[in-house]
Design a protein around this nucleic acid. Structure first.
Lengths: 219, 219, 219, 219
DNA sequence: CATGAATGAGGATTCATTCAT
DNA sequence: GATGAATGAATCCTCATTCAT
């Protein structure tokens, strides 16, 4: 196991940065196609159009590859959700949530299999490191969102709700994209998921949930 | 890929049955500790206290081991949920759900990491075979439960809701058990998950959700 | 390697003798179907309808099985050729040879693949032991035949010729049966092989080859 | 079974070519010593003085090793016979044949046991591929030779004779070299084999067999 | 004697990683 | 820095043989 996940050295020159990016993209493709264990570093190097030796110049081991890929995706997800929330201020609480859910599904749709690969039993330390960072980001993002939309002052009370919401969204989205053909459509999922999220927040209703003045209705 | 998933031979004698059980238990342990790919058949045999040759006398290949382990767990889960529902007739809808959630968590607590191993990219066919069977069982179990408790006649409408509920429960429970130390407790999770489930079913409220005569209130 | 090829013990009772025969037949089938190395002792036992333990009661190891199978076939071949020669006294030399060749082909046709299995690289000692015995038998059989048909008195001179004839017959027959579809027929082979044998014996012509009184012609 | 028999990659650089050659030589030795099935790829790698990994860099599997070894030998044999025939134009028909036979024996003497290994039940497809190619080459070589030396116009008639001749030579030579100590010498074998070949061609005598002007006698 | 469960050495092959060029 | 040939530990699985019942 490696103690220093991530890249071996900071890419200082442009060429290096491009190289790293190329490799991460190749890794993403291969992991998506075959899963973590089945993927080989040689395959990835080949896909990236470089030699295996070069790959190891930038990444100390296989673990670090999945780490970077995962990190990139996490960053992307955070970015998407953040902008989604930012653009939802004029929407009702329910609609805001709906938009986030929908956008999430769309974001995941791009590479459903990759996310499955993330679920794999990747050498323990590796995955968790970035999972944690990612989850912390998301938690604070959502906490902020909820604090804006409610009058909950004690953010500690929000923690379990956010935990439940985050995990439920992730799994339902993955499962839905993984399922392929189902007898129901995406809209059904979005609706039910939104209802679930609202349900989860039910205990905050007395805290003036949804005080957004832009939303006149009962949402 | 093996066409005859499961054991190589039907355990006809007691000794065989015990052997199979011992192996499945060892496999469960090893898979739990290391995940599918990292687990080796030799390790499993050693843990079971038998020779590798004996292991292969009962299981044709590695696939069949995870298959059996998974099957055993699925059966256990179905059994638990079924008895849980059966014993919940005198409870309010909300409490019935709460009990199922709670029992599920307890059931999973026994081997939290194993479930993560199931999520792995196991040689495609294998996992799916039993996943499907399991999900079908659970879906029909829940459908029945909901039809008893509501006046929804068109069970097709329930499908997406059940899909969402099943996946949300699974993932939240796994995540919670996986998380180890959190700043909130099990009860918080149970409450929020129950609320989420009720939220998910909100669109059926007009269908007379919860008509259980035993429950006088609006629950 | 085993020092005592052949059966572990002399079958003294009828039951044992039948058992041995059953096993040898099963072995013959399996070796024919899969070749020596691919065949497994368990397969053979199964085909024989007995347990693997019983098989090892009669045969100390795998080697001894092929040994017995081969021995049986050698004996059969010797018997066939012997009776063939015995019944050829009224034929011309050429026709006598032709008959032997033809009969040999027919004898081999019954199980062409088995003979191929004999050609395999069976654990050195084993095969050779019986090969030698077989060849000695055949050599003396043919020597006798030729001495009857010629006035060659020094049988040592016949040795190389017999060596050549035996091997050429064996290989051509095997090759022909192995070839499957050819653009020529069995009769062509028989004719050319007969001519070859006669050619091989050409140097004995001055020794009054073919003095058979039953044959008036120049043969 | 491998679809791309032969080497995994074309040896483009000198080093690679040498490596391949080294491996083939090691493989030849091991196959010669132990036969196909008994030979292990690790043994071969060790004998070649390389790691097992390197071996698999050049040869995709065990099959491909025997394939290459066999191919090399076939090519060598064809080359030898071809040059032998080319240099025999001034000889009588009988002497020409004698020379080919003698040269063949000498060529085989270098590695008598290896040829036995070729006779093994090698994974069907593999061996046959090159056997066929080899036999086609030899057949056309011999056909040409005979058409030069006779006035036979219908080469189809020659086919069975050539089939018999090729197989008889092969087996007699192998058997002789395999036999080790015999009570007769190489010259005896050569003579008898030559006579056999001529005998095999007896039916073409009326076709003006041996019209070579360089040979005044009836040979 | 018969049984067949148990054994475990051994074999083909893969793949992360190194290092000489 | 880039390359890719070389490495060899490690894996799944087979099968001849034994021996307790």
């Amino acid at each position: 196991m490696h103690l220093n996940p991530g890249q071996r050295r900071q890419p200082k020159q442009l060429r290096s940065r491009m190289m790293v990016e190329t490799i991460v993209e190749a890794a993403e493709q291969i992991f998506t196609e075959t899963g973590y264990e089945q993927a080989t570093t040689n395959q990835i190097a080949e896909r990236a159009g470089i030699s295996i030796g070069s790959l190891y110049q930038y990444f100390p081991n296989k673990d670090s590859l999945i780490f970077e890929v995962q990190k990139a995706h996490h960053d992307e997800q955070v970015r998407v959700v953040k902008s989604c929330i930012a653009g939802s201020r004029h929407l009702s609480f329910r609609d805001a949530i709906k938009v986030v859910v929908l956008t999430s599904i769309e974001n995941h749709s791009k590479s459903p299999k990759l996310h499955a690969a993330f679920e794999e039993w990747i050498p323990a330390g590796t995955k968790l490191i970035d999972r944690t960072r990612f989850e912390e980001n998301m938690v604070s993002l959502l906490t902020e969102f909820l604090r804006e939309r409610t009058s909950v002052t004690d953010s500690a009370r929000l923690q379990p709700a956010i935990f439940v919401i985050m995990n439920m969204c992730r799994s339902v989205v993955h499962a839905f994209l993984h399922a392929g053909q189902t007898r129901f459509g995406r809209d059904d999922i979005v609706t039910h998921l939104t209802d679930s999220i609202l349900g989860c927040l039910k205990s905050f209703e007395d805290q003036g949930l949804e005080t957004n003045p832009n939303c006149g209705g009962s949402c």
